[in-house]
Design a protein around this nucleic acid. Structure first.
Lengths: 199, 199, 199, 199
DNA sequence: TATGAATGAGTATTCATTCAT
DNA sequence: TATGAATGAATACTCATTCAT
């Protein structure tokens, strides 16, 4: 208990340091996979001592879970940036779809990390549950498209998965093959998808 | 001494045992991820002693690499089953696409395993190289479609990734959400894809 | 019990095979040390199966102990070859000393093996005891030399150790340094020794 | 933070702990031989955890090699203690010879350890090379003796080996036979040797 | 007897976590 | 808080020994 505890009762954990830890973890998982990281490597990559890591995260499991949740949330927050429900459906979909595309490119490490986490002893059921909740707004979007008769009248789950699958895999394979992704290719891919789902 | 000793005098490693080991590994990776498996667990699940595992695979890395290669190959072998280049393009594509779809469902564990391997300290570069080679026949298929003016005239890489991405992600999310996949949903998904790529 | 047990009641173990095993063991110990040998390596080097090794020696410890005893005995047997107590003392000593010298060169591996065994978990106390007994005849030789006033009148133990130490170390260092040992150098070394011990 | 942190900012590995590890290893090798030691036994004997051992030595091989090198060096350092080249040759030789004798008695474990190491899978060639270099000063001593016509005019290698062989074997056999070594016996042994090598 | 694959206890090594400073 | 050496349980791997053939 420090002297200022009455002024600042919540632990004022250094968010910059937390960010360094998260970035270090993402980088290492991208390089070596979840199976290839150790707490001391993370600490070293984050420029702190191993013991310090345990001040911020009480265990490896907690660290992975918090990072997983953060990654999920931060992607969800970005989807709807610039989205305006009063604009036409296709325009709205484009906004979200390109948001997601850009996010996947810029945060490729997050995607790798989340993929690896899904089957791992670290992620708890409650963390997995959270994931599903974050998909809700996208479901609503699909329903709107169907109501406006702009989308094929098929199962919303299938449509939703389908709409974003091409994007996911395209980014993944492009990175693996070290191919540049151009603005033109993004638009081409959107059209491939749109031609598939449109009514 | 087995019946074939006169044909094959060198020790024919017990392929049944190898298969048990592979199945045990796939199951455990699906349940716990690559980060959560141990050699002794694999041995136990395969009903052999730990030491026996090392008769068949000289190290954990070798085991993972061999299984990775096998998984890649076995999927590649199945793609073209029943495919006949003299049949119409769309029919051929359907054959391959459904082959792949069924394979993903029946061998879901292989897919999970391969996803986890890609970013892992176990898979060597040479093993990764192999993967690329196995994609070649599918490239040719796409080129045929483009030549016959049946596919949009866009980058073959993009088309290829796109054609199979929906299937991959749909199977994955269906399994995660514990949704049954019906024959009808397969066909719907194929149509979504086809409407996207057709010229 | 085989059908001929009444004819040949003692197990007729294949002495040639035993010899192969011993030679293989000596060679491997010279190359890798006691710490570096395994039962399967010995078997392989002796051209038999691991299981067969256990027909001849019930355990690694037994194998090492039997070989140790054999090495000790075979050297002891050779010492006095050609020795005739009726000949003058110095002549007799020369006979024994050169016997030993030659034995050390020709059976260098035995010496290495015995050195390594002495501090090892394999050699039992009773095996060590045996060693001491084999030294008895040499003690008598020294006593004879002292009685005949040809040797310095000092402790027999010291004289005995001294008489053969130069030879041991010279062979060892020569082998390590890959130096040839000539007939002349043997005689020079004998003289060094003799000038030291003579009365 | 120790007092010398401003002088030596890099982690000064705890030399006391290293010394404990070395002593524990020597003791165990004397008792059980190289073939009979385990890393956990060493750790236990050194009063540290197994993991700690690996902070100081990255592998068993490294530990054995470092200890071997240290043993070799520490004996070499002691040989010439008190030796003064301006004193008469015989006096100088006595100084060195008794230094070595005492060292062998006091550090009997080092001798056992080095003997065991020579034929072992642990010692690398580069470590063996080092050994030869440490013999150089003794060679010079022998050459001086020959130049001063105090030693027999025979091969320096033979003289050198011979001069110290009696001492080595005498200590070894005395310890094995649990005989006390007296000051008188040391001198007797020196005289045996001297009478052999003197011109 | 002879074989060599199979066994599992044992050993080297790693790594999440703790703790003295 | 921050440090990083220390810990020891867990894990990869080895090898003496057994056993079905």
């Amino acid at each position: 208990m420090n002297n200022y505890s009455f002024i600042c009762p919540v632990k004022p954990r250094d968010e910059l340091k937390v960010e360094h830890i998260f970035q270090a973890t993402l980088l290492l998982v991208k390089q070596n996979g979840l199976a290839g990281i150790t707490m001391s490597e993370i600490a070293k990559a984050a420029n702190i001592a191993t013991g310090t890591l345990y001040i911020y995260f009480e265990s490896k499991e907690k660290l992975i879970n918090e990072l997983f949740t953060r990654s999920r949330k931060s992607s969800a927050e970005i989807y709807f940036k610039g989205y305006n429900a009063s604009h036409p459906f296709k325009e709205g979909l484009q906004t979200i779809w390109f948001n997601l595309f850009n996010f996947r490119i810029e945060h490729f490490e997050d995607a790798v990390f989340m993929d690896q986490c899904y089957h791992s002893p670290y992620i708890t059921e409650s963390t997995k549950e959270l994931t599903k909740k974050l998909m809700q707004p996208l479901y609503k979007l699909v329903e709107r498209g169907k109501e406006e008769k702009l989308l094929k009248n098929i199962d919303a789950f299938m449509l939703l998965v389908y709409m974003f699958s091409g994007l996911n895999e395209f980014v993944k394979h492009s990175v693996y093959s070290e191919r540049k992704i151009t603005k033109a290719s993004k638009e081409e891919l959107f059209n491939l998808m749109w031609d598939g789902i449109k009514a």
